[in-house]
Design a binder for these strands. Structure first.
Lengths: 270, 270
DNA sequence: CGCCTCATTGACCTAGTTCAATTTGGGTGG
DNA sequence: CCACCCAAATTGAACTAGGTCAATGAGGCG
């Protein structure tokens, strides 16, 4: 509830961090104590409207935001006025956790829909590092998954062409939204116009439209009025050459990496 | 010297971390104590030959490497056999610090030249987090600059075309190499064949060659036998629409961000 | 109803690819 | 020093994915 208090401060309303916790639990053991500390450190909700700029390029930042509802994207303008979308974030993602080490952002963050965020002040991250280094590593991990997604976009833009590039993007959205239970029967909400889709993939609106038709004709993907339907994600993934490894969703390999240290240093995960 | 020991362990030879320290000092206050702790935690040198794979995609990693000499690149293969270079790292860069939170890498790291690295075991990063959180934030910062570079590459690949895209890449290399004193009179060493340059920029070798000729004809850039000469970096940058902000080289804005916390928690920077 | 944004289509144009040959410049062995 | 080799650079000439321009439809909404 928005009225919750702890340590004399307003804390995040119950439920607002759920999707993040769900995404973490998909990847690591995550103790109740860790969840509790995170929740206590997060402050109440902020609302934004579609089109709002949540963070503008270059401005100093003193807190990071977790997207609890809605969609935002990272975007940069070139000197020639071309807009490039560098990532689409989904509920449960931190949208600017990287501003903690960086202090300011190199890009803008814009709301694609009405949305809500929960704050985590940078000084509270300092406290997390001191008290629960394992939780700090989870936060660092979250920022590194974004970096991995960036690398895959570089591959997508530099190496894949046409319909495969587009299909790859939809595969990524499918997997990321599935983590937070936002895919039902192969259908998910995605609030991008064809023009914006083109701004993410490096195509013009016209060509974006034609590629979507191509994917529809091949029975791989239907995308109309902000709703995507994937008949068979396996087929779409194989068409696109999509391999979800880069999302670090699966298991044991990196879970082991994260937890080695706790064992050694005795930080409890319970 | 390679024979140095501390805490009974072989430590990094004197000088091997210099370029990293130089790059940090370009951005933040960095105390001798911090430098000392980093140096004590880093283990002796490993050598690689041009073409060696330092880290291969997917394999688990237990230490990170700082590149003290030579050049390496991050690369991913697509299912269709196309190779994409996602970043070229320069001496003084950590090449896989992100493997600390991630545990494995989503891409391979390949030597472009003979090179030397110094190890930082992940358990030592745990110790750094416990003992010197500010140093840990500097490491986190280093990984986030890579992410920022990735975003700018997304913009470059998605939004800029032809000679401007190529010029932008050379501007980035110029600025990054200047930080570690590897630019002399506008000339710097860059060990990429035209084919590899194309793999970074999403062009074929043939087209890469033609773009280089175009830049040469415009008196913006000369690139022959692994040596790049920029007549006037200002002109090249303005031609490319290059703005170095995303490299987080300059000053006060994010330095303030990094140091706020130390003040609060009293961790000394001296 | 009228407006406005977004989707869609068609015709033409160009940046970049593809294929195929030729040249260049180090290295290497004799 | 020369003959040879090989990878990389360079050139030319078709070819095509994607861009550009311009017009038309279609849904949402005051």
């Amino acid at each position: 509830m928005a009225g919750d208090f702890a340590n004399g401060r307003r804390v995040a309303p119950t439920g607002s961090v759920d999707k993040f916790v769900k995404a973490v639990r998909k990847r690591f053991a995550f103790s109740d104590a860790e969840e509790r500390m995170l929740l206590e450190r997060m402050s109440g909700t902020t609302r934004f409207s579609a089109g709002d700029v949540l963070v503008s390029e270059g401005s100093p930042v003193t807190f990071s935001s977790l997207l609890s509802d809605g969609f935002v994207c990272r975007e940069k303008m070139t000197d020639s006025g071309h807009r490039q979308i560098a990532e689409v974030t989904v509920p449960g993602d931190f949208i600017d956790l990287h501003s903690y080490p960086l202090g300011r952002l190199d890009h803008s963050i814009t709301a694609l829909t009405d949305c809500r965020t929960v704050r985590l002040y940078h000084e509270d991250i300092d406290a997390i590092i001191q008290e629960r280094p394992r939780l700090a590593r989870i936060l660092w991990f979250a920022t590194m998954v974004d970096a991995s997604i960036h690398r895959e976009w570089i591959v997508n833009l530099g190496s894949r062409k046409g319909a495969k590039r587009m299909a790859h993007f939809f595969c990524e959205m499918y997997y990321r939204l599935e983590v937070v239970d936002m895919v039902r029967d192969g259908t998910f909400f995605l609030p991008l116009t064809q023009g914006q889709l083109g701004e993410a993939l490096g195509f013009t609106p016209v060509h974006t439209n034609r590629l979507l038709q191509e994917l529809r004709a091949a029975n791989l993907l239907e995308y109309r009025s902000h709703s995507a339907t994937v008949a068979d994600i396996g087929e779409l993934a194989s068409f696109a050459g999509f391999d979800p490894d880069y999302l670090y969703l699966g298991g044991a390999r990196h879970r082991a990496g994260l937890d080695r240290a706790d064992h050694q240093y005795g930080a409890s995960t319970r």
